[in-house]
């Protein structure tokens, strides 16, 4: 196992432990459990950035300029991850409005999903890729539906819980996306000699960030909580599904971005620091999402109409 993963496993362990301890605590959640993972993320970030700036070897062609990749690449990865959370949570919020359909949908997607994976084993080439892709998609849907059912049944998750997570993730994704675009243009000045190029990945990222800014604004401009929930979740799903189409279209349009680096083309020292920083960004964004989720929940509570006075006793 590559050394970078140890830090991830430790972080996930802290996350699972604190979240579980907070959930199972008798009398409900009182401590802000997310500070554990937040502190860990901050420590990892400081160490990772120090490593990226001083300890990692300089790039063969771009020398020290390439050190920006220890912030740029994690920001790109984790902004996509955050948008994926927003999408999954939006889907979940829509599904939890009809919790009875969850076990049915879970089974109905698991069976063909497993079938398609089995089919992928027998096929080759493009067909194999397609079968595997849709198989994995169906199985992920089945897993999410099962998790939602458990959450709804045993942990009191409602549509609102997931809606607040979607709201939080969208905003964290937008922040990371803006960071990504800004750092990208700082990076592109010394390497491509321009601040901005109309390259597919740049363009698609910019469009992606703008799409989710739109979703965020839609959320803030609808007053009725239930309408807002449904509308912004539907808009999140559409915005997310549109990302690959946007990417394809601008890819055909023009292309100059450097080819994606793989662990084979990078020195193992560079991969280590890159992974470390990616973990730091991931845990940091979990912390941000959890903080933002609390704000969203508090706002929803403040917005809720006051409780009705008890009914007068009938003599």
């Amino acid at each position: 196992m590559p050394a970078g993963y140890i830090f991830g496993v430790v972080g996930l362990f802290i996350f699972a432990l604190t979240a579980l301890a907070a959930t199972l605590r008798p009398g409900g959640v009182r401590a802000n459990w997310e500070h554990g993972i937040g502190l860990y993320a901050l420590g990892l970030l400081v160490y990772g950035q120090y490593g990226g700036l001083y300890l990692a070897p300089p790039d063969t062609w771009m020398a020290d300029v390439a050190r920006i990749l220890y912030v740029h690449v994690p920001a790109a990865w984790i902004s996509m991850v955050a948008f994926t959370w927003a999408f999954a949570a939006a889907f979940g919020a829509l599904m939890l409005e009809r919790p009875k359909s969850l076990p049915v949908l879970s089974a109905a997607t698991a069976v063909p999903g497993i079938g398609l994976i089995g089919l992928a084993m027998a096929l080759t080439g493009v067909q194999r890729g397609l079968a595997a892709f849709f198989g994995i998609l169906l199985i992920l849907t089945a897993v999410e539906c099962a998790l939602l059912w458990i959450g709804n049944r045993f942990f009191n998750w409602t549509s609102d819980t997931l809606d607040h997570i979607s709201e939080a993730s969208t905003e964290v994704g937008v922040v990371l996306g803006v960071l990504l675009l800004f750092l990208g243009s700082v990076f592109s000045r010394p390497t491509f000699n321009v601040y901005w190029t109309w390259d597919p990945r740049l363009t698609a990222s910019a469009v992606m960030v703008l799409t989710f800014v739109g979703v965020s604004l839609l959320r803030s401009s609808v007053d009725d909580p239930i309408t807002r929930r449904t509308w912004s979740n539907v808009a999140t799903i559409l915005a997310y599904i549109n990302i690959p189409v946007t990417y394809m279209s601008v890819k055909w349009w023009r292309t100059i971005h450097q080819l994606q680096s793989t662990p084979d083309t990078l020195s193992s020292d560079m991969t280590f620091w890159l992974r470390l920083n990616a973990w730091a960004f991931l845990f940091l964004s979990i912390w941000f999402v959890a903080r933002r989720w609390r704000i969203a929940r508090a706002r929803a509570l403040a917005e809720a109409p006051p409780e009705l006075p008890p009914a007068p006793e009938i003599p």
Binding site: L217, N242, S249, V250
Partner: peptide, 13 residues
């Protein structure tokens, strides 16, 4: 303001 902001990035392709 909202309609162009939501619609235009989406129809880029």
């Amino acid at each position: 303001v909202l309609l162009p902001l939501l619609l235009f990035p989406l129809v880029v392709p």
